[in-house]
């Protein structure tokens, strides 16, 4: 059963009482909250995700709650609780849904050490995955959103999970987080895209989440083979340019963007070396989305 089978009041009631067991990629999250904006965000952006009935087991037990301090009467706040323990400083209540998204990323990135976890978007076409590692502000999510609106499958817009045992990429499709101008750029680019509510004044500016394509969610258990590692950079007015990047430099830059590279020790090194060996590596600058999409469509996978 998918979330969309529940009406919003039903979903809200479940979230408030026993909670829901939500399947995202290979992870099951047990989520509880009585905050209406979160229920609304889940109903809208997670409509196509499976609910696990009679789960018995959840990877992460998560709740969002308002701290019961005096402050709740004039400036209410929200806490992200990981099995009852606050993991971050509280945020204004208005930011509850973005906080859930950040918290869910944290759940995976700080625990799932069977994977080399890279701060990167991943999209796939024809069985070949493109990994887009980048620091915030480089336009990674914008490019990722545009690509999935034009037929690429979304594996993740935030976390590339490279399985240590075989080097394959594990999908974790979740809503794509867009910031500031990117929100209107993508709205304009794909008028049919479904967006959650805009939340302003977060630590990342104004954010809104775009629903992941339904097909990507259906294929969330199908792993992909890495083919390209591409470092995107949005630059106003820049020409669309794809430049070959020496593998050694690509290696170091991916390592810089990995959450658990040093924690995994020699396995981290081997996994990353395998990833770079299997991939063609590029620097990519762009300013026009249509041209960027064309460039991606023309990418040749590495010779087998």
């Amino acid at each position: 059963m998918n979330i969309s089978a529940l009406t919003l009041p039903e979903l809200g009631f479940r979230l408030k009482t026993a909670g829901i067991f939500l399947q995202t990629g290979s992870f099951v999250t047990h989520l509880r909250t009585s905050i209406a904006s979160v229920a609304e965000g889940i109903g809208l952006l997670y409509a196509d995700y499976p609910l696990v009935e009679q789960a018995g087991f959840a990877d992460f037990h998560v709740s969002l709650a308002c701290p019961r301090t005096l402050r709740r009467w004039f400036k209410p706040q929200v806490l992200f609780l990981f099995d009852g323990r606050p993991t971050f400083k509280p945020l204004p209540l208005d930011q509850a849904f973005p906080m859930l998204e950040w918290g869910l990323n944290w759940c995976v990135s700080s625990h799932a050490n069977r994977y080399l976890i890279i701060h990167a978007a991943v999209v796939e076409k024809g069985g070949h995955a493109a990994i887009l590692p980048a620091p915030p502000g480089s336009g990674k999510s914008t490019l990722c959103a545009a690509l999935v609106c034009r037929g690429w499958r979304l594996l993740s817009d935030e976390l590339a999970l490279v399985r240590v045992s075989d080097g394959r990429i594990i999908p974790l499709p979740r809503p794509i987080s867009l910031k500031n101008e990117s929100i209107d750029i993508i709205r304009h680019y794909e008028p049919d895209a479904v967006f959650g509510r805009k939340v302003s004044d977060t630590m990342k500016g104004t954010v809104a989440h775009m629903r992941a394509p339904a097909e990507s969610i259906v294929q969330a258990m199908e792993t992909a083979r890495p083919a390209w590692v591409i470092f995107p950079r949005y630059q106003a007015g820049a020409a669309t340019r794809l430049e070959v990047l020496p593998r050694s430099r690509a290696f170091m830059r991916v390592a810089d963007n990995a959450f658990n590279y040093s924690l995994l020790g020699v396995r981290g090194f081997e996994t990353l070396a395998g990833l770079i060996d299997a991939s063609l590596c590029y620097d990519f600058s762009y300013s026009v989305l249509d041209e960027a999409i064309e460039k991606f469509a023309a990418l040749k996978p590495p010779a087998p």
Binding site: F57, D59, H111, A112, N113, R114, L263, L264, G265, R267
Partner: peptide, 16 residues
């Protein structure tokens, strides 16, 4: 398998 996965995750931390 599911709980074992979590145990393996923490084992990676302990080894390091």
């Amino acid at each position: 398998q599911q709980p074992r996965e979590h145990l393996e995750w923490s084992h990676a931390i302990a080894e390091r």
